[in-house]
Structures are given as structure tokens and as C-alpha cells.
Simulated scan of single mutants.
Amino acid sequence: MWSEEGMEFHAGTVEDVRFVVAHMPVEVKNGFVYGAVPWSNFSHAYGPGSDVPDLLEQARTGDERSSNEALSKLSGRLLQQGTSSAAGALAIPFLVRIVVALPFHRAGILRVIAGLARRQYFGDGSRTGLLRAARADDQIVFEPSGYLANWSVQAAREALAADAGLLLPLLGDPDPEVRQASAYALAAVPNRPASVADCLSARFQDEEDPAVRACLVLAIGQLAWEERHPDTIDQMCAWWQDYNQPAEVRVCAALTWLCLTDGPAPDNLRAFLELSITDDLAALLESIPWLDHIVDGGLRRCLDQMFYPEKYPHFTTELD
């Protein structure tokens, strides 16, 4: 890569998973025509992706136990320890259709989809990291196979964007775990499409489950992160200062506002967060996807990273 054309080595060819995903016909995706996809050209944590089609089909057509076994294997191979893979990006169009059709395992599948469309960020609750899906363009990261992880995450996000409309109805699923995971997955869609942003906002108005409300706030914020969308910044500022909003909404809005803005945290915001986070609220928020990976302190560790970034140079340096 370095000796030839850097990041553009093999870009736009059949060796580029972004190219392959972008040119996957809808008939292939809808018909589960696995044979039309060059799985063996791309790898996961345990080798070539040629074993992925059989596992996808077992997940799609098996009984609940058999499907769960296949999904467990897929998660371990495509998203090993939170690290995305090129084979995982190829699998997203099929996983999206499986999660829509299956009556079980939906939350777990959505978490896999969301993980594939994000950089590996376990433990990172910093202002520059909590809502960040992709790495900087000039930061090259490789998968265990040697493939360019930047391309895999980008391909996964684009695959998710192409089929986001299939997932939007799951924001109203009867299972709150599915609603949480749907918001988490949709938040990784790039370029803040209006259809996704509007549906997340509409769902927020009707949502009654506290954990799902928290997820929706963070999802709305994450969609706006790359462009620092000014309307979202204003909305988050209004929410965290609104005494009529429940605590989980105000706290997540404050976290999101910190992620969307630069400069020191205002004294009144810091005071609000320090006074508002009870053990019960911390336990609630540490169960949601954005915060459950922050070990040794969860929500309070997240705040420590945001207020004292100098203590966590391995996060701030990585994303500068």
C-alpha cells in the first residue's frame, strides 16, 4: 500500500469492498443470492469469508436454536472483539433482511450490524469518540487479515445507508431492546439522511421507555456529529436545560452537546451532570449500546474522559 498509492491502492476495483458493496444488485440482496458475492476475496477474523453464506442461510431459515448458533458464529467471526471486517460489510445487506424477517434475535443482529458500521471504540467515551463512527481519513488501520479497516467500516456504513428504510419500522418494535438497537444501528448511517433523522425525532416524541429515549437522543446526536449540524446542537442545548425532560434525556442531551461542540464545558453543565447522575440513572444508561462498552466506571468514566481528556491521551491522540 505505502509503496504504490497509499490509501488508493486498488480503490474502485473488485479488491475494494466499498466498490463491491456499492455494486451489489438489489435482486441479489432481496433474493439472498449469495453466490453472486465474492466472499472468498474478503476475510473476517478467522480467515476468508467463504463460510459466511452458509451461516447467513442457517440464521435465516433455521429454527430459533439453530439460528442463534449461526448468529453467534457470525458475530464472533465478522465482529471479533468489536473489530469490523470486510466480510462483515458484505454481510450487512443480508443481515438487514434477516433481522426484518426473523421473529427472534432481532436486537442481537442489530447490534452486530451497528458494530460493523463503526470503528473499534471499546472504552472510548471521550468528546471526540463517543459519537464517532469512522476514523479520520488520514488514519490507516488494518484488520487482523491485513485488509484496510477504514474501507470495511465505510463499506458497512454505505450498505446500511442503502437499506436504512428497511430498518426504520423497527424503531416501533414492541421489544424495547429492539428499539434501542435499531436506533444504535441507524445512527451509523453517514451523511445524515433526512428520512432517518426525521424518524428518530418522531419516535422520540412517542417513546415511553427511558432507556430507548436515551438511545434516541444519542442517535440523533450521532447522525449530526460529522457535520456538527447546528439545529441538533441547539436542540441538545435546549433539552439538557429543560426541567420538564426526564433525567435520562437531559443527561444524554448534555453528553451529546459536549460531543458536538468544542471548548471547555460550561460550569452550569458540569454542575448539572455532577448533581444529576444517581446510581440508578448510571445503571440505566450503562446498559445502552453507546455506554455499555465503557468499563471500570461506565457513565462516570465517560464524564471523566470528557472533562479531563489529558488523563486519556490514548483516545484524544488517536482521533486528533
Rank of each mutant, 00 (worst) to 15 (best):
L110K: 09
S201C: 07
E64M: 11
S195V: 02
G49K: 02
Q222P: 01
T256C: 15
H44I: 02
G172R: 13
Q58P: 02
G165S: 02
A87T: 00
A211Q: 13
S50P: 10
I220K: 05
A70M: 04
K29M: 07
D279H: 14
C237W: 08
S152W: 03
E4H: 15
S67H: 01
G263C: 08
A187T: 06
A271V: 08
P176S: 08
P246N: 08
R60I: 01
I113D: 04
A159R: 01
P230L: 13
E143L: 15
A162L: 11
E57G: 03
A117K: 05
W240S: 05
G35C: 10
D175L: 13
R300C: 13
V37C: 01
E4I: 11
D304L: 14
L291Q: 10
L116P: 06
V189G: 08
Q205D: 11
G6P: 03
V28K: 06
R77N: 12
V52Q: 03
W240P: 04
A91E: 03
L131P: 09
D296W: 03
R18T: 11
L319M: 13
L79I: 01
Q222R: 15
V178I: 05
I98C: 01
G172F: 12
F315L: 14
R192F: 00
V153P: 01
I92M: 02
T232S: 06
W39M: 05
S195F: 00
A136W: 11
G108N: 13
A164D: 09
F42E: 09
L78E: 07
G263R: 10
R135D: 12
G165P: 06
V100K: 06
S152E: 10
R192Q: 11
D175M: 11
F315D: 04
A247P: 02
V96G: 05
F94T: 01
L171S: 10
D51C: 04
M236L: 13
D231S: 15
G62A: 01
T317V: 11
A194G: 04
D54S: 14
L95F: 03
E5V: 09
Y308D: 09
N68G: 06
A101I: 01
L186K: 07
L78R: 03
I294W: 02
R127C: 11
R18A: 06
A181C: 07
A183R: 08
E286C: 13
A156I: 09
E310M: 08
Y308F: 13
A70T: 05
I233E: 12
P313T: 13
L299Q: 08
T278W: 13
W225I: 07
D138V: 10
A87W: 03
E27F: 07
P246I: 03
R179L: 07
L273R: 09
M24C: 08
I294R: 01
L74D: 00
A155Y: 06
W257A: 14
